[in-house]
Every structure is written in structure tokens, then in C-alpha cells.
Amino acid sequence: FLLLSLLKPGATADITRADGVVATFKVDSVQTFSKNAFPDQQVYGDTPDAELRIITCGGTFDHAKQDYKDNVVVFAHLDSSRQG
């Protein structure tokens, strides 16, 4: 996930489900949030349709805490699905 923050809207991610169906998600946005003000509802809340969130660490590394100060979140929606 090192380069996750470089994804652009319109990029796609294929996810193979346990039943063999491949779900293709299209990126809507990539946003960075401070871990101190992370928008739980926006990221984890219910959505009316199938959506994907990909989350990783980002921003400045805090050596004292041995952790990054931010999270990078990719917001994507289901674009299509097919048998794998």
C-alpha cells in the first residue's frame, strides 16, 4: 500500500470474492485524514450500494510513537462484477 496515495479517481481495483466472482471497484477519491480526527462514520458507515475502502498509514512518521500521524483512505464504488 506504499503508493496508495497516488491512486487517481477512475482507477480500478479487482477483488476476487470467495465464490470466485471478481468485483471491480472504481476509485472515487483518495483522502488523507489525521488519526486524531479520523471520520469513522464517513469511512465505516453504511452505504446504499456496494463500496470499498482501502486504508493505510500515511503522512509524517512520529518516531516517538513509532507510527504515522495520518491514514490514507481510498473511496471506491462497485463498477462491475464477473465470474473469475
Rank of each mutant, 00 (worst) to 15 (best):
F1Y: 10
L2N: 09
L3M: 13
L4H: 01
L4Q: 13
S5L: 08
L6H: 13
L6I: 01
L7G: 01
K8Y: 00
P9Q: 11
P9H: 06
P9F: 09
G10L: 10
G10W: 11
T12P: 00
D14Q: 13
D14H: 06
I15W: 10
T16V: 14
T16F: 05
R17G: 06
A18E: 06
D19W: 07
D19S: 06
G20F: 07
V22W: 06
T24D: 05
T24R: 15
F25A: 05
F25W: 07
K26G: 00
V27W: 10
V27A: 10
D28S: 13
S29F: 06
S29G: 11
Q31I: 00
Q31D: 09
Q31T: 00
T32A: 15
S34T: 07
N36H: 12
N36I: 02
A37S: 14
A37G: 06
F38C: 08
F38H: 08
P39E: 02
D40F: 11
Q41F: 09
Y44D: 07
G45W: 06
T47N: 09
P48I: 00
P48K: 10
A50I: 11
L52E: 06
L52S: 08
L52Q: 07
I54H: 04
T56F: 01
C57H: 11
C57Y: 09
G58D: 03
G58W: 04
T60I: 08
F61S: 10
F61P: 01
D62V: 00
D62L: 01
D62W: 03
D62E: 02
H63Y: 11
K65A: 15
K65C: 01
K65L: 13
Q66W: 00
Q66T: 02
Q66H: 03
Q66C: 06
D67Q: 14
D67V: 08
Y68T: 12
K69N: 12
K69S: 15
D70G: 07
N71S: 12
N71K: 13
V72K: 05
V73A: 11
V73W: 11
V73G: 07
V74C: 06
F75D: 05
A76R: 11
H77G: 09
L78T: 03
L78N: 02
D79A: 15
R82W: 10
Q83R: 14
G84Y: 04
